[in-house]
Design a binder for these strands. Structure first.
Lengths: 341, 341
DNA sequence: CCCCTTATGCTCAATATTAGCATAACATAA
DNA sequence: TTATGTTATGCTAATATTGAGCATAAGGGG
């Protein structure tokens, strides 16, 4: 049996600190948005100065972790959080490059928070950023993104080839195929985190560089720019976790309505789902699903607006939640080649 | 804007410690099992001396949270963990009654770990306990458990009535109906945590008492005994989280095979799923689903054993995971009244 | 009024699911 | 040896759910 680690820990645990970080997600202009704040310290290592709202957990002042999070978000962005859900606790060593140069060992608890379109005023010091600016390979609404076939596939191929042994290469290839839907596999829109971590391991994104490699390689920098905007620390990883979770959750819980204004047309609803899921849906089937689940009810009001027949406004039926175990919005996915509806 | 909490936290964060706890789950004898270890300190407040394997996270000695967890589990039970997944991080104040009398503020990261039947030797100082001994209301394999209609329904009714306002009572009733499938709602086997927390709030289980109420009320003690065996700290809450997650997960990921021996009959597989899900399934449909998903392949070997026609042994097809986004084992639920198969 | 756009109703075929029926292959008791 | 009980396994009819698309309605702008 291994030596107990108790003695060590008692004396040295002081190094510990818990950081609370929030991925605030909203949808507007048919794009998923994430709230970023400018980092006071800056983080020259990744050339990024933006990150998620975050702050240390205060065991005295904060009654719960979530309360601490709410406080920090309010302070940094002025936003009062609504729907909030814990994502994951990250504690790997050297997550934050600061740690190498003597900073404290960070453990960070990531949260997903949903913000309604109507509340979407950009606060001081913070900005709503298009989610796909940081994950350009995740948007399949117009078909397979160019960056997958042009940059990622080849980059990952090189990584596969750089495997030590035959077995190793084999395993790498399988992992690549599965996570990126290459080699005949299908693209699973929920595997956002797995894809991010694979790109990280393969050295294809900016964050990897902070773990040692040359920082001045021009072509590398250029490639990394293509691969989406990085954030401080491991905040892009938290974003990936958030979006993966959200993509999964909209399918089996009616969380999408946390992002919608009180009244919306079915098409607006569909657009919001599409923005998050990163795929286009079949319109008629989508409305049938939503209607059959009894998720919405007509308000009687008619939309005044955009070219075409006016649509009716609907609202979320809060009662369904009480009635029965209610599922979210399944995804009647459309064929790759965009057709009429 | 509220006063920044930064100043406070810098000086007083020392109080912080992170505890790693693992819910090790296995299935044997058609019952889900959980590994409990005897608590050195004891916890007179809840009359329980058993808890999950756990220990403090050591930022120096542990490279990752999960590694720390593995170390602690190995030390306390001798078990080398296989499939492991992080559940949730609990940080509410006064989770642990020790805290009231000056103990440190605990933040605890809970994990779910799956242990294969074959590896099921009960280690020193630890025991595999029937999961339903701690959650007797969760087992619906033989229909609605008596405890729900006889003890819980009435207890929760009293709690509903003790609501302050009309609105308050109304809300309580809705919550009760939804989580326990009363008043026409359907029982959702995944809501294990919600049910536990509701019982906790309503004061129907032993853990509640540590938050203030009389400890010597005889009828109360008796009622609490009926309501399943408690554990130290908030370990029963972590158990609830684990089982809820697992019940959800077996439906969409093939995790059930992490609990099975390499070869098994389809009925053994079904029994394992039933044990976890807490419901009985339709046999023929179950095997069709498993077969259609391509999750298993026949080994050719025939079971020698129990009364009836011998069954064929199957094994998990590891390749499916590579082939496509593979779902778990959906639950073709059988009617309440036990019938033939 | 024609044409473009979006909204909405509806159908048809392909699959999946639910609930059983029926038969096979063993063990054991009459 | 046969009847009976038990579990395994194949198969089917009735429903429900999906996927794909046709068709019509109802606006706006030339």
């Amino acid at each position: 049996m291994p030596k107990s680690s108790k003695e060590q820990s008692d004396s040295q645990q002081r190094e510990l600190s818990i950081e609370l970080s929030a991925a605030l997600v909203a949808v507007s202009d048919e794009a998923p948005k994430i709230l970023l704040v400018r980092d006071q310290g800056g983080d020259s290592a990744t050339h990024s100065q933006f990150g998620l709202p975050c702050g240390p957990f205060d065991p005295i002042g904060h009654r719960t972790l979530e309360e601490g999070l709410r406080t920090w978000v309010r302070e940094q962005s002025g936003i009062q959080l609504g729907y909030t859900e814990q994502l994951y606790t990250f504690g790997d060593r050297f997550r934050d490059p600061q740690e190498r140069i003597g900073g404290p060992r960070p453990v960070s608890v990531g949260y997903l928070a949903l913000v309604r379109q109507t509340d979407l005023i950009s606060p001081d010091n913070a900005d709503w950023s298009d989610w796909y600016r940081h994950f350009p390979w995740e948007d399949w609404r117009l078909g397979a993104p160019a960056i997958v076939s042009q940059v990622i596939a080849s980059g990952l191929k090189a990584w596969v080839e750089s495997g030590e042994t035959r077995i190793d290469k084999q395993r790498r290839r399988e992992r690549v195929d599965m996570t990126f839907g290459l080699g005949g596999a299908t693209w699973d829109n929920e595997r956002v985190l797995e894809r991010y971590e694979l790109l990280y391991e393969a050295g294809l994104i900016a964050e990897t560089v902070t773990d040692g490699r040359a920082r001045n390689d021009r072509s590398l920098l250029q490639a990394h720019t293509l691969m989406g905007a990085a954030l401080i620390k491991d905040h892009r990883r938290i974003m990936a976790t958030a979006m993966g979770r959200l993509r999964g959750k909209i399918k089996y819980r009616p969380v999408i309505f946390e992002l919608m204004p009180p009244n919306f047309t079915l098409y607006q609803l569909q657009r919001a789902v599409e923005a998050l899921a990163g795929v286009r849906l079949h319109k008629q089937n989508f409305r049938r699903l939503v209607a059959n689940e009894g998720l919405v009810e007509a308000t009687g009001q008619i939309a005044s607006q955009t070219g075409g027949r006016p649509a009716e406004f609907f609202r979320f039926r809060r009662d369904v939640v009480r009635e029965r175990p209610v599922s979210g919005v399944r995804l009647p996915i459309r064929p790759r080649v965009p057709g009429r509806n």
